[in-house]
């Protein structure tokens, strides 16, 4: 099993930390992982993205141009990465702020209204974990037990009291997914 994922959005949405928590959870579950962030000039202009690879085997290239899954959180990232999903692959996006919705017919598309839900519940800090919940519902790469360990490892100890809130957000995300039919 190898899952190649791009997570992309605005800086501040928790894109890099979502990837980090996923990667750490993978490590805890004894998987091979790589976490490759965009850095430098790519980061200017407000977009942030990270490539996360989780595999049972040694990981080859940490840098890719096509992905099994794209998790997309803003329009710029939609423009850049919708075309990078492998045929038959998965695209999850938050429609908040999206002006041009994805329209590929050869991939599976789901929307997750994580920003709205996080706002309603006062959980905007764990918005990214709602999105991660949606992804893990469709691709259960790491079990809740290892996700818990991943959170413990990737969050500094002073934030460990927030782990239950993070886990609750993941559960909310799992129920929030909607399959999108492209006509």
């Amino acid at each position: 099993m190898t899952e190649e994922i791009i997570i992309a959005g605005f800086g501040g949405q928790g894109v890099l930390s979502m990837g980090k928590i996923l990667a750490y959870s993978g490590v805890m579950q004894n998987k091979e992982v790589s976490w490759m962030p965009s850095y430098g000039p790519e980061m200017r202009g407000g977009t942030a993205n990270v490539t996360v690879i989780i595999s049972d085997e040694r990981i080859s290239s940490p840098i890719l141009n096509s992905f099994d899954t794209a998790i997309i959180l803003n329009q710029q990232s939609m423009d850049k990465f919708e075309k990078s999903v492998k045929p038959g692959g998965l695209l999850i996006y938050d429609p908040n702020g999206i002006t041009r919705h994805p329209n590929r017919k050869d991939i599976n598309i789901y929307s997750i209204e994580a920003a709205d839900e996080a706002g309603r519940l006062g959980l905007s800090k764990v918005f990214n974990m709602i999105v991660l919940g949606g992804f893990l519902k469709l691709k259960p790469l790491v079990s809740p037990e290892y996700l818990h360990k991943g959170l413990e490892k990737s969050l500094p100890e002073r934030h460990h009291k927030l782990i239950p809130e993070n886990e609750k957000a993941v559960e909310i995300g799992m129920k929030l997914l909607k399959a999108v039919q492209v006509i």
Partner: peptide, 10 residues
């Protein structure tokens, strides 16, 4: 290089 320096792995 920057990529090997910036990426996280086990």
């Amino acid at each position: 290089d920057g990529a090997i320096g910036q990426m996280m792995e086990k």
